[in-house]
C-alpha cells in the first residue's frame, strides 16, 4: 500500500526537478535560436558552432556535470553550487540539441518566404525575426516537446551532486523505509506524469498550427 506521507515526501522533490528542467530549457532556447540562425547566415562561424554541438551530443551530460562541478568549480565559484551546476550543464547541452531542432525547422520553411521578405526591403535579420522564425517555431514544437521531456528525465543526474530533486527524494525514502522498490516505482510514475503530457501537448499544438497555416 502507498503511504500518503511517502507520496507527499516524494512530491517535495518535484519542484526542484521542474526548476532544473525549465531553467535549462530556457538556457537552451536562448542559445539554440541564435546559433541556428548564425549557422544559416555565417558559414565561418559555423565551424565553432558545429564543434560545440558535436561535443554536447557526443559526451554524456553527466560527465559534463562532474567536470563542471569538480573541475571548473574551483575557478568558477557558482559551479560549486550543485543546482546551478546541473542547470548549466543541462542548459548547454540543450542549446546544442535545440540549435539542431531549429536548424531543421528553419530549413523546412519554404525558401521563397525569405525572398518575399527581402523583396519588401527587409534586412535578413528582420526576415528571420518576422517571417522565418515564427514559422520555424511551429515546425519545431514537437521537437521542443521531446527536448523538455528529455531534460525532465536527465535532471535526475543532479542527484549525483546531491540536489534534492525527485530521484534524490526517492533514494532517501528507500533508505528510510523497508521497501526497496516502491519509492523508485512511484518516482517513475511521477516522471511519466510530467514528461508525457508536456510532450503530448506541444505535439498537438504544433500539428494544430501546422494545419491552420498549411505548413509542411
Amino acid at each position: 500500500m502507498i503511504d500518503p506521507n511517502d507520496l507527499l515526501f516524494l512530491l517535495q522533490g518535484v519542484p526542484a526537478t521542474l526548476a532544473i528542467s525549465f531553467l535549462s530549457f530556457g538556457i537552451g532556447f536562448a542559445l539554440g535560436i541564435p546559433i541556428a540562425v548564425a549557422r544559416q547566415m555565417s558559414p565561418s562561424l559555423s565551424y565553432l558552432m558545429e564543434a560545440y554541438e558535436k561535443a554536447f551530443r557526443g559526451i554524456p551530460v553527466l560527465v559534463f556535470m562532474l567536470l563542471f562541478y569538480f573541475g571548473l568549480g574551483g575557478f568558477v565559484p557558482f559551479l560549486k553550487d550543485p543546482f546551478t551546476c546541473a542547470v548549466v550543464a543541462l542548459g548547454l547541452r540543450s542549446g546544442a540539441f535545440q540549435s539542431q531542432i531549429f536548424r531543421g525547422a528553419i530549413n523546412s520553411v519554404d525558401k521563397q518566404q525569405m525572398m518575399a521578405a527581402l523583396s519588401l526591403g527587409m534586412t535578413k535579420t528582420e526576415a528571420f525575426r518576422y517571417v522565418i522564425l515564427p514559422q520555424a517555431f511551429i515546425v519545431a514544437l514537437p521537437g521542443l516537446g521531446s527536448e523538455i521531456s528529455l531534460l525532465i528525465k536527465d535532471s535526475s543526474y543532479a542527484f549525483i551532486l546531491g540536489v534534492l530533486e525527485l530521484t534524490k527524494h526517492a533514494d532517501i525514502l528507500r533508505k528510510a523505509s523497508r521497501s526497496f522498490v516502491f519509492p523508485y516505482l512511484m518516482a517513475a510514475v511521477l516522471y511519466i506524469l510530467m514528461t508525457f503530457p508536456i510532450a503530448n501537448y506541444l505535439d498537438k499544438w504544433g500539428s494544430r498550427l501546422k494545419t491552420k497555416y498549411g505548413l509542411r
Partner: peptide, 20 residues
C-alpha cells in the same frame, strides 16, 4: 540594397504569402 528593394515590388508565381 534593402532601401532600393523596398521601392521595387515583386509578385511571385507561387504567391509566397507569409503563411503565419
Amino acid at each position: 540594397l534593402n532601401m532600393i528593394r523596398a521601392k521595387i515590388g515583386f509578385v511571385f508565381q507561387d504567391p509566397s504569402l507569409f503563411r503565419h
